[in-house]
């Protein structure tokens, strides 16, 4: 069965860059969605779960850490893997979002190889 991906970032440019990097990494998703905020992401998740969420941290309305917490409250997202993608590289922040329920953390700038390294184990 095909995998699905949601990219959550308030920057349309970054969403496209992430999408392109995912493709370059060789990872295959049958369905991809985009959301410009945590609120929009939650609305879409209520309509149906996805396998993987790539999520920015610093966003207006609802930031990435809040989204992780709320997504974990959704029964439909129990199996969803959430990977944060952020320029923030402070270890205490990384530890915090991981304890909040994130499954991985990718720092910007990133490469296709980094995506492969971080996402492939989660997809398997």
């Amino acid at each position: 069965m095909g995998k699905s991906l949601m990219i959550v970032d308030d920057s349309a440019t970054m969403r496209k860059i992430i999408m392109r990097t995912v493709r370059m990494s060789g990872l295959e998703f049958d369905r991809t969605e985009e959301a410009g905020s945590g609120v929009e992401a939650l609305q879409k998740l209520e309509g149906g779960p996805v396998d993987v969420i790539l999520c920015d941290i610093n966003m207006p309305e609802m930031n990435g850490t809040e989204l992780v917490k709320k997504a974990r409250e959704l029964a439909s997202c129990s199996g969803t893997k959430i990977v944060m993608v952020s320029t923030e590289s402070a270890q205490d922040l990384i530890d915090q979002v991981m304890s909040d329920g994130a499954d991985g953390y990718i720092t910007k700038p990133f490469t296709p190889e980094k995506f492969q390294e971080k996402l492939a184990p989660l997809l398997n």
Partner: peptide, 8 residues
């Protein structure tokens, strides 16, 4: 809008 304080 993306600028937010962090735990760092």
């Amino acid at each position: 809008p993306t600028a937010e304080p962090t735990a760092a």
